[in-house]
Design a binder for these strands. Structure first.
Lengths: 186, 186
DNA sequence: CGTTTAATGAACCGATCTGTTCACTTTGGC
DNA sequence: GCCAAAGTGAACAGATCGGTTCATTAAACG
């Protein structure tokens, strides 16, 4: 029964923070909705900020695992890059989609020097590294530039799916990605 | 001396909300930093939410005026569309740039049914209409699709400028926009 | 069995939250 | 100079904030 409640708490807090926001979610509500006592929460995390950082670590791992596993199923690198937008489309279609956790975190903690903001930026950096590698494997002349372009489209699609009126931002992004990867070797 | 303090309050509140976030900014701090008494604030706005809605209306007007005025200076429609990314680049370079007010608002009020979220979505809709018109004037075969692509790049660039490590997201976005508009008549 | 560790519930802390009340002062227009 | 509108300051309200304290319970491990 060692660290059982801790993981459960992080998982549930992720769900609730994602749904309602960070500032808008109090520790009392968190305790009430998870059934985990406040005493226990503060035994595992010395502050709300520490809990949020743990939540973001979990989300980073979850999200990148999910995305790249789904991309790998598409086969060769070029197809994998296209598949990123198919995965996004499925995500956008899920009923509890509410944008990107890290964009939300950086919105609520706008100071880049804030640990929560910094850790969110780190997630984006890790994503870039993985996409850049795939772009190189796909034979891009400038893998970094292709990766930057594709990730611009990804972030734009996420924001638009949450805030915009568009029917299929992932599909739109995939089309633009097509013009970007047109000169790639098959 | 009619509605003097009201406008001043909205303007200052815009600055402070943009800098620190909505939930993180209390009405007392707002009163202290603007020098406007809390009594007066609540005489002009019956709630914080009403004030935020007024702030968003002002921001919508300010931002679209600024952006499209700057684009108009670029000359013909095609050049105007490219100029959007130059304008973004200048914005990103300003020392107090902290992402897009409406993305931030939708992050803090994630429920699409919430008035603040809905009004943020309306801003994006207005932007789309204007860009779509320009795309039509530029001779695009599918103006709506071109507008959607360009705005994906715009939103992605904004998020990346705030959260990412990239040196020049506006420049990256402009390059991708170039591949999108390659077949446009000069 | 006994000990340690995890977890609980509820009360409590001071600070801050949105919003109100009220008596007072300033200001502009006639 | 008068009146009405606009603004002020400070206290107040009740709720909630992040975080702590403490006595108690439950369970894993030797």
């Amino acid at each position: 029964m060692r660290p059982s409640k801790r993981g459960e708490l992080v998982q549930e807090a992720l769900r609730i923070f994602y749904r309602d926001g960070f500032h808008a979610t109090g520790m009392d509500l968190l305790s009430a909705e998870t059934g985990i006592s406040k005493t226990t929460m503060f035994k595992h995390f010395r502050s709300k900020e520490d809990l949020i950082l743990a939540v973001l670590r979990l989300r980073d791992e979850q999200f990148r695992n999910w995305l790249f596993r789904r991309m790998e199923q598409a086969g060769p690198p070029r197809a994998q890059l296209f598949a990123m937008f198919d995965a996004l489309g499925e995500w956008f279609g899920s009923p509890d989609f509410r944008s990107c956790m890290f964009i939300k975190a950086s919105s609520e903690y706008p100071d880049p020097a804030h640990p929560i903001h910094a850790q969110s930026a780190e997630h984006k950096r890790l994503l870039f590294t993985q996409v850049e590698k795939l772009a190189a494997q796909a034979g891009a002349k400038d893998p970094a530039q292709l990766a930057r372009g594709l990730l611009l489209l990804k972030e734009g699609a996420i924001v638009t799916a949450h805030l915009g009126h568009e029917a299929d931002p992932a599909g739109d992004a995939k089309m633009v990605a097509g013009t970007l990867m047109a000169d790639l070797p098959a």
